[in-house]
């Protein structure tokens, strides 16, 4: 399998505080990569570096390279807006816009000018909602407010909104932390299906979720990537003592 994203010598600062320290990491194409670690270890910061969402925070600075399909996304000529069409993001708390279900999904295609005709847009919205396993639940009420959905449906709507612009990579920042167990499992099922088409990076503090749902796992500790391996190996035979201590619940 190819590397979709390659991270080299990457460091990140909030003002004077170094949040990420000299990271090397490869994200495989069409796989689910989980990032685990205790709160404040930098895993979410790292995720937000992959589509440069941290650019919106003042006083931050990045060093090193992140190659996406071989191109450094931190190179000066990179169009950040276009980059984010290719590397989408799903947030910790479901954040549907206070608009109709249809308009939420159609938002991306509209702003990037993907669907010129109404019929194309309709098809794209349907495909995206089907892709997010939400179509059957909402097809009769596309004009209803997205805020009327339950949290699990809202999160799947946010996933539908993200895949509507046909990204290559989907970043998920603890997408299930606001969901109940049933909704969590449905999002995990969805992730496995999406992995056939997309590359997925998920941050989670739930180790069972990482073990259940991912192919690769990286363990972060205090801004460093302590260990990176296939999920199976990392959980069954961790190499670093710190990793073992964390996944068995003795540290963290």
């Amino acid at each position: 399998m190819n590397n979709k994203i390659e991270v080299r010598e990457f460091s990140f600062y909030y003002g004077a505080f170094q949040a990420l320290k000299n990271l090397y990491l490869d994200i495989r194409e069409n796989a689910i990569t989980a990032l685990i670690g205790p709160s404040g270890c930098g895993k979410s910061t790292f995720l937000r570096c992959l589509n440069r969402m941290n650019d919106t925070i003042r006083g931050t600075r990045a060093e090193g390279q992140v190659f996406f399909d071989g191109r450094d996304i931190y190179a000066p000529a990179v169009d950040v807006v276009e980059l984010r069409q290719h590397i989408g993001m799903v947030f910790q708390r479901p954040n549907p816009f206070p608009q109709s279900i249809y308009d939420n999904v159609a938002f991306g295609p509209r702003v990037v000018g993907m669907a010129a005709r109404r019929s194309e847009l309709d098809r794209l919205v349907q495909e995206s909602l089907e892709g997010a396993a939400l179509w059957d639940e909402v097809k009769h009420r596309l004009r209803d407010s997205a805020l009327d959905l339950n949290p699990g449906q809202q999160q799947r709507l946010c996933i539908a909104r993200t895949i509507a612009v046909k990204p290559k990579v989907i970043l998920m920042d603890e997408p299930c932390s606001a969901l109940d167990p049933v909704a969590t499992l449905s999002v995990e099922d969805l992730m496995r299906r999406l992995a056939q088409e997309y590359t997925i990076v998920i941050v989670t503090h739930n180790m069972q979720q990482a073990a259940r749902a991912s192919h690769y796992t990286g363990f972060f500790w205090l801004g460093e990537l302590v260990e990176f391996n296939t999920t199976e190996n990392l959980f069954s035979a961790p190499k670093a003592p710190l990793t073992e201590a964390y996944i068995t619940g003795r540290r963290g």
Binding site: T56, E82, Q85, M89, P96, F97, R110, V111, V112, V165
Partner: peptide, 21 residues
């Protein structure tokens, strides 16, 4: 704030995020 982040993360420009969301 999540609305703005959500819009930017799909590839909206800042103005699109302001105007449409």
């Amino acid at each position: 704030k999540e609305y703005r982040g959500g819009a930017l993360a799909i590839g909206a420009t800042q103005w699109q995020s302001i105007w449409r969301v």
